[in-house]
Design a protein around this nucleic acid. Structure first.
Lengths: 341, 341
DNA sequence: AAACTGAACGCAAACGCTTGCGCAACAGCG
DNA sequence: CGCTGTTGCGCAAGCGTTTGCGTTCAGTTT
């Protein structure tokens, strides 16, 4: 039913090995025979069985991508870009969506990518045990989140610098009571919230503003969480006049909370986000932009490069930092003395 | 280096075939031996090579998912839900992101899923040729977009009914000049825009409103397109007092255009979307909600069911329709006589 | 003209599993 | 006590490739 390499060989009047060599551009086949074989293969609609070829060669031409919540904008966008690069290079991608704890545990114990992929791109931060499991795969590893890790090529941004310029922007506008919506409840080893928070603290310090813990609220990196967090911040005795949300999704939740309270941004409180979400422009959100698709693409490219290298390399793990920039839109302004707050 | 089935067999003191049967729960192995083997396998960290086992068995335990733009909310969300179902059932997913024409052509000519997947979930509408290519794979097929197609299990919504209730809502509010932002420039065979447009036309007719072609604009199903389309609509001699956007993304673009023109929704023009995008609530967009994750999950489940069936079935292609509902938020209201329009 | 090249190709052995079949061993039956 | 069934397991033949090695043969060398 499905045509195999021997069928092609028979029709072309050569051996299977020659067909294999011819189709993969390996030397040892004359140009005419090669052309002949290509013609026959095309005509018969032959495609080599990946199972068989990877069994025989050890190469799978497949990349494993593991991510939490592909549904979320950030991960979906990174995945989109990475997949594009991989498939253009002839690699397929095996996707693992590890949103739930069960899925995550299942993945790391059974490790279904073992012997199935040539490399792994991780969009989540593995804990130590998980990290070890990934390393045990013996393939190149890359990630677009978190800080540098042994054996991982990481492509990311300077979270601290991003947070710094966000908060500094608020300070420059004249704000003194600046709140932050963070994501402390995220899994361990997730350094982003920590770095962004530190940026926030550092700017406060440099501006001589004493840090008020009541002005920090947890938004869990979701829209709803951001809304809840903003609501909390509005409930403190002296609410902030500006808020730095560690992600645009949380910032949008914050905007929603403001609307619910009949307050307006930036008239009553300024809001700045982080990420430059696809829809940030739609809601006019001022934010720190990071090149999300570029990060995915770059990570993919670096991974592919490692695969092309003459092996035996001592795992050329690198750390590339992508540029960030402040995008001014309509949710930040100087504090208004007329605000009801 | 990596442990194979024979290693396990040797350690457990049995043959490889017994290990294979034991680990996969096949009959013909006594309980004690089975337990023994399981123990050894666990201890050795053995995982069967997927390549080898699918080569031998023909089963791949992998599902191919092809989608345009996984980065877009709708597809990302469907994918997320579907992947969750698949992986819970022990299947892996091979992802193909066919955003660009080149990627798409490459996929359908080389058909990298051939002999590599047990089923395919398509989130894009194949043209006739592509459809034939998919069918030639000889595996169960499903889709969450478009109308019924031979050999496909389709899970979707009633686009016509959704559009109908959207436009009827506007009519009930008292609007007579109702514009539409559609997506005509999308690829052929994409029935959604057609069905939604028909719903629009039908309601106009039933309300005795004569259809004005100048009130239709193409938004290409993107935010920017929606913004452009709204701008066009505002430029006609007598602009609409309400607009039905065929997707929330376009509706958000429309809102953005309104803001740019110093107009407000719903004060100056009402806007209703379609999909109930994750962020629709954030911007207060009235819309037609469809259960996106549920569609992905359901399609995945139906596909798995076909795989479990005793084969030889005459391709039990079904067509399930998920419920939709009107979600009232803050972008629709009766037409205002005081509007500058 | 004999010996020596490569280049082009075929042979056959993996790769690590699955599975039909055969063969013991043992149970239950008349 | 022989006979027929079961049950539990091993044998070995694939599955469709890739690849090291061997062979053939035309084209150089001496």
């Amino acid at each position: 039913m499905t045509v195999s390499i021997t069928d092609v060989a028979r029709v072309a009047g050569v051996s299977a090995s020659t067909v294999s060599r011819a189709l993969r551009g390996r030397p040892g086949v004359s140009d005419e025979v090669r052309a002949q074989i290509a013609a026959v293969a095309g005509q018969l609609g032959y495609t080599a069985s990946r199972s068989a070829s990877s069994l025989a060669s050890g190469r799978t031409f497949t990349i494993g991508v593991v991510a939490p919540h592909i549904g979320r904008w950030f991960f979906g966008t990174v995945l989109d870009a990475a997949e594009t690069v991989f498939s253009a290079a002839g690699y397929d991608v095996l996707l693992y969506n590890l949103g739930s704890p069960e899925a995550r545990k299942r993945f790391f114990t059974r490790l279904p990518v073992r012997k199935r992929v040539d490399a792994v791109l991780s969009l989540l931060i593995p804990d130590l045990e998980e990290e070890e499991a990934l390393r045990s795969l013996g393939v190149p590893l890359a990630t677009t989140v978190g800080g540098a890790r042994d054996g991982f090529t990481v492509v990311g941004i300077d979270d601290h610098a991003g947070a710094t310029s966000a908060v500094r922007h608020l300070v420059n506008l004249g704000h003194r009571r600046i709140g932050m919506i963070s994501g402390e409840s995220e899994p361990l080893h997730w350094t982003t919230p920590i770095a962004r928070r530190q940026g926030y603290l550092d700017v406060l310090a440099e501006a001589g503003i004493t840090h008020d813990p009541a002005l920090e609220a947890d938004g869990g990196y979701t829209v709803e969480g951001g809304e809840r967090a903003m609501t909390e911040l509005l409930a403190v005795s002296r609410p902030p006049t500006a808020v730095f949300a560690q992600s645009d999704e949380m910032a949008m939740g914050a905007l929603r909370a403001l609307r619910r309270h009949r307050l307006r941004a930036p008239d009553d409180v300024s809001v700045i986000g982080f990420d430059d979400h696809e829809l940030a422009e739609v809601v006019g959100l001022t934010t720190i932009a990071q090149p999300v698709p570029a990060q995915g693409a770059e990570a993919a490219r670096l991974l592919l490069r490692q695969l092309d290298e003459p092996v035996a390399e001592p795992a050329p793990t690198g750390h590339v930092r992508m540029p960030i920039r402040l995008v001014l839109r309509e949710t930040t302004a100087p504090p208004s003395p007329r605000s009801p707050l």
